[in-house]
Design a protein around this nucleic acid. Structure first.
Lengths: 145, 145
DNA sequence: TATTGTTATACTCTATAACTATA
DNA sequence: TATAGTTATAGAGTATAACAATA
């Protein structure tokens, strides 16, 4: 519950701050992931944003409509598309980071660096725990439908 | 980003586990909030689930359709409605907690109790930080629209 | 055969604004 | 006037299944 309420308050604050620029918190995440690489296939982006192919596509189409992102054919794999930030996307992202800088600072101020280290470690552990194949009662039959 | 990925993986695992029972992770949260009190007004529930009145109503209607929840007139305030779990809702919730018990145990196992204490403190701080009125540049004019 | 991405579709959550009824 | 809740409506994310093209 604590995790939920921390995440949701962050997500909503971010949404509220970014809405002036017509971008959602989730789209901000996609843009940020793109900023860390020259170009990524949609498949790679799915991995980095913990999303799914069809969800991601819908988001990319929206971002493309806003001309923040370009999807071009992959040079060697003709099934794939390479996604990258447009110049405009890059500019906007810089603005968005600046806009959210104050919030991040306030956060860093209110926690010690030791606490932050523990926090990051815990969050990573949580993510791993929930991502594990879950060792369902595979031998005991399928779950009820 | 760590917070996001921890939350999302938890949320998705929970959704996947609960879907057999026709309940989403968010609905689970509402049911759990209701379990902690005899009866709550919708307004009170909004506070406890960090939701908003119209979102919450939509969820309650769905839960009512499934007969997990009942909304009855408030005895003294005729504007309000009191929401409570039905017997069926209470039974289902117990099942759901049992179903998710294994996951919680795995989590507790992989962290020390000291780490958990720090984690909870950090998450609470994060939630507070993002919920603060934000001290926007109130004196410098309104934000761009 | 497996993988990348698309399409169609459906559901849930989210949120705003205008509204009714009551306090 | 303020508060509790409803309604209409819109947008965004989520996910599944069937599909095409390519590896």
């Amino acid at each position: 519950m604590a995790l939920r309420s921390a995440y949701l308050s962050m997500h909503r604050q971010t949404d509220a701050r970014l809405s002036s620029w017509g971008v959602t918190a989730d789209q901000f995440v996609v843009l940020s992931a793109l900023a860390e690489a020259e170009a990524l296939t949609q498949r790679e982006l799915v991995g980095r944003t913990s999303s799914d192919p069809s969800t991601l596509r819908a988001m990319l189409v929206r971002l493309e409509d806003k001309q923040l992102v370009a999807r071009r054919p992959h040079p060697t794999d003709r099934r794939a598309r390479r996604v990258r930030l447009t110049a405009r996307g890059r500019r906007l992202l810089a603005t968005l980071w600046a806009e959210s800088e104050a919030l991040r600072l306030r956060l860093v101020d209110s926690l010690t660096s030791e606490e932050i280290a523990t926090l990051l470690h815990c969050l990573a552990t949580i993510a791993e725990t929930f991502e594990m194949p879950a060792a369902r009662r595979a031998t005991a039959g399928p779950p009820p439908r």
